[in-house]
């Protein structure tokens, strides 16, 4: 029944708006993220702070802090709501991705895009420290923009500038090598 309705909606979008599912999968993922962030905040009480339904920087950090606090009795700084509750978003990311990869026979132990293992470790170490200075990943920053926080627009702009600067550096490096 639900599948039938979903198929009808997709067909309607395809024929009336030229909408193709395969070429808009990232858009659908993004829209789903935004909607789910609102749902968990509004109906499941994932707040304060506001707009904290989904994050790949502060949520893993809060989970690590929660575990360290429980094991060693420390009191590291965490988001108010996650002091007593473990936030499992990052575990969910990995489990969901694993399930999708297994279902589509894409799971395989292999090297990633960063070939040097030490470099991958250091990048994770460095990026979380810079990310924690702002306190959010680009996904949560976009969620905060949609929540109406004007300062998040400035921060999203800084992130775009950071990507552009890195691209220009890579271009310069390639040109120099040639």
């Amino acid at each position: 029944m639900e599948q039938n309705i979903l198929r009808r909606i997709v067909n309607w979008l395809r024929w009336n708006l030229g909408f193709k599912l395969s070429s808009n999968m990232a858009l659908i993922t993004g829209v789903t993220m935004g909607v789910l962030a609102a749902v968990v905040q509004g109906y499941f009480g994932v707040q304060p702070p506001a707009g904290d339904g989904i994050c790949a920087v502060s949520h893993p950090a809060d989970l690590v802090n929660w575990v360290v606090d429980k094991v060693f009795g420390t009191s590291f700084v965490s988001h108010e709501i996650f002091i007593a509750v473990p936030v499992l978003t990052s575990v969910g990311f990995i489990l969901g991705s694993y399930a999708a990869a297994m279902r589509n026979k894409e799971f395989k132990f292999r090297r990633g895009p960063v070939r040097d293992h030490m470099q991958a470790f250091i990048l994770g170490f460095v990026i979380i420290n810079f990310g924690m200075l702002w306190g959010s990943c680009p996904i949560r920053t976009a969620v905060l923009v949609s929540y109406g926080m004007w300062f998040a627009v400035l921060i999203l702009g800084m992130m775009v500038l950071g990507v552009v600067a890195a691209c220009l550096y890579i271009k310069w490096k390639v040109r120099r090598a040639n």
Binding site: I94, S97, R110, R111, G112, A120, F130, G131, L133, A166
Partner: peptide
């Protein structure tokens, strides 16, 4: 500055923190 540098180094890591979680779930060592 934190946001700028997060984005800069994420380009070097070939993905945002979320994408890295997904790649870990796919079995990628990086």
């Amino acid at each position: 500055v934190g946001a700028f540098l997060l984005a800069y180094f994420s380009v070097m890591a070939e993905g945002c923190p979320f994408r890295q979680h997904v790649m870990a779930g796919e079995g990628r060592s990086s």
